[in-house]
Every structure is written in C-alpha cells, then in structure tokens.
Amino acid sequence: MADQKEQETSVFTEEVIKEVIFRVHRFSPDDGKPPRMQDYKVPVKRGMTVLDGLHYIRDNLDSTLSYRFSCRMAICGSCGMFINNLPRLACKTQILELEADTIEVKPLPNYEVIKDLVPDLSDFFEKHRSVMPYLIREEEEEKIDPPTNEFLQTPDELERFLQFAYCTKCGLCLAGCPTVATDKVFLGPMALAQAFRYNSDTRDQGFEKRLELLCVPEGPWRCHFAGSCSEVCPKGVDPALGVQLLKGQIVFTKLGLKKPHKIAPLATEKPEAKRRPGIPEAPPRTVKKE
C-alpha cells in the first residue's frame, strides 16, 4: 500500500531525471542552407513526451523551430515524426521509454519537407481524395444531401468497417511503407484501407466506381504485405488488413464468387427519441437560428 502511494506520487514529480540530447532536423526554404541536424540539451522529467521536449526547445532554446501539433493526446494525428528511426506520434512517445541519451527527431520520411519537422501532406490527402472516400448512393441526390433521414445499418454491418473509420490521417503508415519509399505514385495504405472501408459500408453503392480507380498499376497490387503500416499505426487501424481485404474483395467480386453487399435502406420514419427521466432540458440557444 505504501509502495503504491509512493509510486502514485512519483508519477507527478517535477524532478529532472536526466538530460537528453535532442538531435533535430532543421531546414528552412528561406535561409538557403541545406537540411542539417541541430543538437539541443533537454532536461527530462517523468511523463515527458517527445512533443513536450520540442515545446521545451521552442520555449527556452530556439523559437524558430517549426513542427505540427494540436491535441497532444494522439487524437488529431498532427505530430507524426520520425523519432529514433521509427514513424511515431511525438505526443504519444515518452522520452524515457525510448531508453536513449540521444533522441533523433526528423520529419516523416516519404513526404517533402516544408520546414524543419513539418512534412508536406498534400500528396497524402490527394491520394485519399482519389479513392472517393465518402458514401456514394444511387438515389436522387436530394434525398441524401442534405440527409432527410438515417440509413438503417445493423451492428454487425458496422463492425465490418468500423476499425478503418478510426484512422486519424496522421500519415505514419506511408512513412513506414517500403513500397512508398521507392514509388511516389503508389496510393499507399491509408487511401487503400479507406477505399475498403467505404466499399464495405452497407450505406455505400460506390464499389464499381472505386474499382475503376483501384485497378491501376499504382493500386493495391503493389502492396506485398510488409505490414509496416500496421506496425506504426498509433490507433490500431491495421491498414495492411484493409489493403489485403480490399484485394480479396476485388478478386472474389470480379470472379462472381462474392455477391455485392446488401444496401442499407433509408429509414422511412423518423426515429422517436424520448428524454430519459432526470435529464434536464438543454439551455436556451445563445445564437438565434437564421
């Protein structure tokens, strides 16, 4: 009991445990200098993440350092970096867990560098857009945009794609992919897993349209299942699984061995929602409806 209490208090200690060298990639398109590594000494406290270390450098040592971050809790996927030779989220990587005296922080590989640790994700999002990552319906557009009612989908049908819907588009998978390392046009694990995610959604009828986009040399067949994308994924999305399932989906459907999935119907009646007892009314609107 005493040990447990001691452990709990030590987690919040402000004591500096050790000093590590942050070897950080520096590049600015404006100063005319080639990319280089710069060392900073950072005092490390228990619980400090690599992102905290970068904040320390920016706040105390070098205010010109540029890097991306937002939520600081592995939700937004902004702070993807190449940390000690692996693509990781800086906010999810504890300095002490790296068990190193020197921490090398570089921008995510396989992306162009805008400045310091900031990768250019334009290609990444362009590839995502190219697989039509949205619900495609054959009904008249006025019925679904804006939506008139909900689509009816069972929990089992949801489970078939939900895992891939957890993707935060952090870009780590493309940084880890050995095919992307030498092939700029390969669609990559994120876009392909998202294509599978929408193909498998019973609310979607876009399989044939996506097939035209996927049956190209830079499509799923260029993946040879190294699985590095799934190993580096910070959210357990397992894009390698999505890519392999996409290949099987294409083969079995084209051979006529698998029927297209059932299409989720649009609900005809508005669901009735009743307020549970004891839940107070919402406060009045602060902004008036137009």
Binding site: F27, P29, P34, P109, V113, P119, D120
Partner: peptide, 10 residues
Amino acid sequence: GTISKPENRL
C-alpha cells in the same frame, strides 16, 4: 535565397 523542398524519400 530560397531552396526547393527536400523530397526526403527513403
């Protein structure tokens, strides 16, 4: 005084 973005491909 500007240089192009490094490709940084492995």
